[in-house]
Each structure stands twice: as C-alpha cells, then as structure tokens.
Amino acid sequence: MGAPQWPGDIFRALVDLGVRQVAYVPDAGHSRLLDLCAGEATMTMVPLTTEEEGMALLAGAWLGGQRGVLLMQSSGVGNCLNMLSLVRTCRFPLLVLVTMRGQEGEANPWQLPMGRITGDLLRLQEVFVHAVDDEARLGEVVGTAGEAVFAGPGAAAVLIAQSLVGVKTFED
C-alpha cells in the first residue's frame, strides 16, 4: 500500500481556501499535511505550545484580513473550550482539523476519555462537526466546511477518524 492520498487532498483544499496561517500542535496523523503546508510559500507555519493559542491566533489573523486553519489531535480539543467563547461571541471564522485518538484499536487508555467526547465538546460550543472516516471524502469535506466557515463566518471541525490515521502500537 502506498502513502495515503488524503493529506494531499486536504492540502489542495487549504490552498484553494486561501489559508495563510497554519497553526498546530503536531500529531503523527497530521505529519504529511504539515510537511506539505511547510513547503507552500504562501503559508506561515505557527507551532503552538497549547491548542487554545491557535484559536486566539486565528482570531487575530482574521482581524488582519487573513485566513487560517488549526490542526490538533483530539486530546487538544479539551484545551480549547474557554477560548471557543472568543470564537462564538465575536463570530470569528474557525476551521479545525482534528486527528482522532481514542477510537477503535487505541492502545493508550489515557486517550480514551477525550477521544470519546471530542465531537460532543465541540458541538456544545457550537462548532459544526464533520466526522469523516472515508478518506476519499476528506479533501471535499475540508473544502466545503472551510467555505462555510469563511463565508459565515462560523466554526467547523473536521474529525479525521483514527482508522485513517493509524493506531500507535507502543511496540518496537
């Protein structure tokens, strides 16, 4: 099996959306997409110390007329809950790409609590959630979710299923 196509599909969707600031806490599942973005001259990579920084960053980007995207794994969603009040109260656009942990096959029990409530937490803060487990649809979903986010403006998260990201086995 070759390298999956979906990171390239998402990357092209982000280029088409005019995304300029790519904020992230790294995840293994995002590594290929991050490499593609880092190689794109129009995108500025902004590594974060915690995911909520990205929500504030992208609010500032929008105030300045730029679009951005925020990448994290599911455990990071819990770090963002209060900062989502900024997004909601001011109706800032927010596009979040979440690689899922804590789903089937998860070998780290510490990932289970957040993985099981990731979508619900986002919905409670009025983020529109697209859970995707069909890799052929990921690029299209990111594109349509992003168009809605920046036209709204509103907030949307695309949850990328662990079955697409792969399971960390903790074996040598």
């Binding site: 300029r20 600031q21 500025t44 902004v46 909520e52 920084e53 990205g54 929500m55 504030a56 960053l57 992208l58 609010a59 500032g60 980007a61 929008w62 105030l63 300045g64 007329g65 730029q66 951005g68 900062m83 900024l86």
Partner: peptide, 12 residues
C-alpha cells in the same frame, strides 16, 4: 489570549 491575537494580527 491577548498576546496570541496580537501575533495573528502582526503576522497578517
């Protein structure tokens, strides 16, 4: 979040 809003704005 204030400093990070400033960062996003400064980069833009």
């Amino acid at each position: 979040g204030a400093a990070m809003i400033g960062l996003g704005l400064a980069l833009a």
